[in-house]
Design a protein around this nucleic acid. Structure first.
Length: 748
RNA sequence: GCGCUCUUAGCUCAGUUGGUAGAGCAUACCCUUCACACGGGUAGGGUCACAGGUUCGAGUCCUGUAGAGCGCACCA
């Protein structure tokens, strides 16, 4: 009685032999591009892939992000929407340049200055190009249904134009300005970085208490004695009784060969309980001191440390590295009998995220985005931000989320976001590196031009700096859709529907996309943002090259298949929490893939010739009842109802972003309900090779009809999670009536 | 210092609006039976961190405590 089925089902499911073939067929079909999707699709649904750095290879974090967003896109596509998933890569300016520079230094012993700007940029571009194709193919292997015809790269022509335009508009609105201010200087990377690119590290240090000279009346405490050569004042709390007599007095002394002039000032920023309650004010090498100096009209240009973190002063300290200078100053203090105390303390050291170097605050002329300056929007679709009413970028970023225009369903992340905004200062956007979007500003004497290159460009000098890589990334949701042109894509797909970035870039990227989309379009960049966690190793450590605990997603795919990897990453992990990656889990879902494969085999083997009704495409809103109105017996009708209610449940989970639950429920039903119970019971009804059934024909037909329906529905509902396997089964289903499962209708 | 997240079976984690605790892996025993040994069956294993409270009823809500992780600020 067993029917002959496709012989492929007689062997275990073979992901390696299936996935590549299927992805190629999908890609060739053109259905990744919503313009080609069949049927009437009016509702757009777009997701822009967080651009992947061209330096890298695919890691599990990408794999997770791809799985999550691809599941969302595939679900939307099956719901009949114009589903667009836009692929892209980022130049990751500092990271990429640092990496190539390191290679060149190692292999050729040359620095970037030996090569020159043009040659270095040429080399980095070549490296990026090579890296790009590697990573794009890796993303394909995850099964991500990206529309490759809309591929964008951060440094391509269209994106460069968007960057220039964005910069120009913000400059004209007075939101971008050039200013001489204290910045976070990375002595290793030789560039400024923004506050958000700083990583604080706790390190043991020493707190020294001393006097500048024998005659100086006040002792001060510092962890950086070497900077004291640059002091211009001593600040105390205005109400500190100990120092009232000295307020306003000025002193001249020579500190370790360096003449210093010190004024005693009162400033509320000083904590009277810390150290001696008196602060040596070093405006050129401390953010806080800079601000104190500004408040008291003290000189701010007393630079004693240069860009290489070396001393630049008169006398014995000159040319010493900061650490050496510190020792020298301490020696000198001791020899003069000025050192009063030396205590061990734990301090938070600011280091550069990319290079790990200790940040040296320095005053520099840089470009900034003003987050406090009011401006008005010509158009706005963001609730609470009317066009024409003055607003600041800070307020805009807050309102967009507060009003729900950007739905950020996780309360914890919403709070973190608001907290960040409250502490936000102007954003330093210029970087002293060569790879990236060069600042679109030209100088000729006192003249300044912003925007496209002037025609007589030979007489102008372009600003040598490039923009923070996050500046162009911040435009990504709309620069990928054709902005600044008013393209059809931009009108159709922006704001995008959904995005799921990691929490580590909530402030670096998510917030700035909201800023840019708000300013340039009066829109939000996405309607829903679901922040996800970090993929860690089994014991909770971050994956890192130096620790050697990296896991290559491609190796997992080779071993278990992309479907299994996707399930292993998605199931049982609440979005937002960190994921401890467990290979055993992936292995488990490989077994599940095979289980489903065999469920399909069983049902197809025992399937009759297809009842006419079953071949109908499942129009939205149709339940199993409407498929087989005359053939289902009550017992099977009950099974169908049970399945339908599960499908409704799963659909609700997907609508509310509980992917991990939806997938798990389907898994559980398929294995422990359908296979373990219903199929076993069905053997009695349908008969087996050795034990023919004695059940009446009507009972058989009814059960067969249900089983076909169940298989059809399961394969569809699992498709967002396990796209390859389900597509491969679908291609053999008698109920198949679309070219691909990918474009068939969701079973509810 | 301010804030966030987590604490559920040996391990990794689910548990959506409160209704008698779940999965995978691991463990023990049995079964190569006819969709699948990438399988089937059976079993053991949890006072849901702790202490209060709200409720007819709390893993789920509230308050507090402890531990772990993270973010922000301070860091003279």
């Amino acid at each position: 009685m067993a029917k002959e089925v496709d012989p492929k089902f007689t062997k275990p499911y073979d992901p390696a032999g299936t996935e590549g073939r299927i992805y190629e067929a999908w890609e060739k079909s053109g259905y990744f591009n919503p313009d080609n999707l069949p049927g009437e699709r009016t509702e757009p649904f777009s997701v822009v892939l967080p651009p992947v750095n061209v330096t890298g290879v695919l890691h599990l974090g990408h794999a997770y992000e791809d799985s999550l967003q691809d599941a969302v896109i595939r679900y939307a596509r099956m719901r009949g929407k114009r589903a667009l998933f836009v692929p892209g890569t980022d130049s990751a300016a500092i990271a990429t340049q640092a990496r190539v520079e390191k290679n060149i230094q190692k292999e050729e012993g040359k620095s970037r200055h030996d090569l020159g700007r043009e040659e270095l940029v040429r080399r980095i571009t070549a490296f990026a190009k090579e890296s790009e194709s590697t990573i794009l193919n890796q993303i394909r292997r995850m099964g991500a249904s990206l529309d490759w015809s809309r591929y964008a790269y951060a440094l391509d022509k269209a994106r460069s134009r968007a960057v220039t335009e964005a910069f120009t508009r913000m400059y004209k609105a007075g939101l971008i300005y050039r200013g001489y201010r204290i910045v976070n200087w990375d002595p290793k990377g030789q560039t400024t970085i923004s506050d958000d690119e700083i990583v604080y590290e706790e390190r043991p240090g020493k707190l020294y208490t001393f006097k500048y000279s024998k005659d100086f009346p006040i002792s001060i405490a510092t962890t950086r004695p070497e900077t004291k050569a640059g002091d211009v004042a001593v600040a105390v709390h205005p109400e500190d009784p100990r120092y009232q007599p000295f307020l306003g007095k000025e002193y001249d002394t020579v500190f370790c060969d360096v003449p210093v002039h010190l004024k005693i000032v009162a400033d509320a920023a000083v904590d009277p309980s810390f150290g001696t309650g008196a602060v040596g004010v070093t405006p050129a090498h401390s953010q806080i001191d800079w601000e104190i100096a500004r408040r008291h009209a003290l000189p701010t240009d007393n630079v004693v440390i240069n860009e290489y973190a070396k001393m630049k002063v008169e006398g014995r300290l000159n040319g010493l590295k900061a650490a050496e200078a510190r020792a020298a100053v301490v020696d000198w203090l001791q020899s003069q009998g000025l050192l009063e105390k030396e205590e061990d303390v734990l301090q938070n050291i600011a280091t550069a995220e990319r290079t790990g170097a200790v940040i040296e605050p320095l005053p520099k002329m840089q470009w900034w985005v003003d987050v406090e300056k009011p401006f008005t929007l010509a158009h706005s679709s963001i609730p609470g931000i009317p066009a024409g009413a003055p607003i600041t970028l800070k307020q805009l970023m807050r309102k967009a989320v507060e009003s729900g225009a950007v739905a950020m369903p996780q309360e914890g992340f919403r709070n973190a976001y608001f907290h960040w905004i409250d502490n936000l200062r102007d954003w330093c956007i210029s970087r002293q590196i060569w790879f990236g979007h060069r600042i679109p500003v030209w100088y000729r004497g006192e003249e300044i031009r912003v925007g496209e290159a002037p025609e007589d460009s030979a007489t102008w000098l372009q600003d040598p700096d490039v923009l923070d890589t996050w500046f162009s990334s911040a435009l990504w949701t709309f620069s990928t859709l054709g902005w600044p042109d008013h393209t059809l894509d931009l009108g159709t797909y922006h704001p995008t529907a959904f995005m799921s970035p990691g929490y580590e870039i909530l402030t670096l990227w998510v917030s700035r996309m909201i800023l840019m989309a708000g300013f340039h379009l009066g829109q939000v960049p996405f309607k829903t943002v679901l922040i996800h966690g970090l993929v860690r190793d089994k014991s909770g450590r971050k994956f890192s090259k130096s620790q050697g605990n990296g896991i290559d997603p491609l190796e997992m795919i080779d071993k278990y298949g992309a479907d299994a990897l996707r399930m292993g990453l998605l199931v049982g992990t609440a979005v937002g929490n960190d994921i401890k990656f467990d290979e055993q889990k992936v292995k488990g879902y490989k077994h599940f893939a095979n289980k489903l494969w065999n469920i399909a085999r069983f049902i197809l083997e025992s399937a009759p010739d297809l009842p006419a009704a079953a071949s109908r495409e499942s129009a939205p809103g149709r339940s199993a009842k409407s498929y087989y109105p005359s053939t289902l017996l009550p017992v099977d009708q009950e099974l169908a109802d049970e399945l339908d209610s599960l499908l409704a449940d799963v659909t609700k989970d997907l609508e509310e972003s509980r992917f991990y639950l939806a997938a798990e429920k389907l898994y559980h039903y398929a294995w422990h309900r359908l296979a373990d119970e219903i199929l076993e019971e069905s053997k009695q009804i349908l008969g087996t090779k050795v034990a023919p059934s004695s059940a009446p024909e009507a009972g058989k037909a009814s059960r067969q009809a249900f089983l076909l329906y169940a298989l059809d529905a399961l394969v569809k509902a699992l498709h967002p999670f396990m796209p390859f396997l389900t597509e491969e089964i679908y291609q053999s289903l008698p109920t198949k009536n679309a070219e691909f499962l990918m474009i068939s209708h969701w079973p509810v």
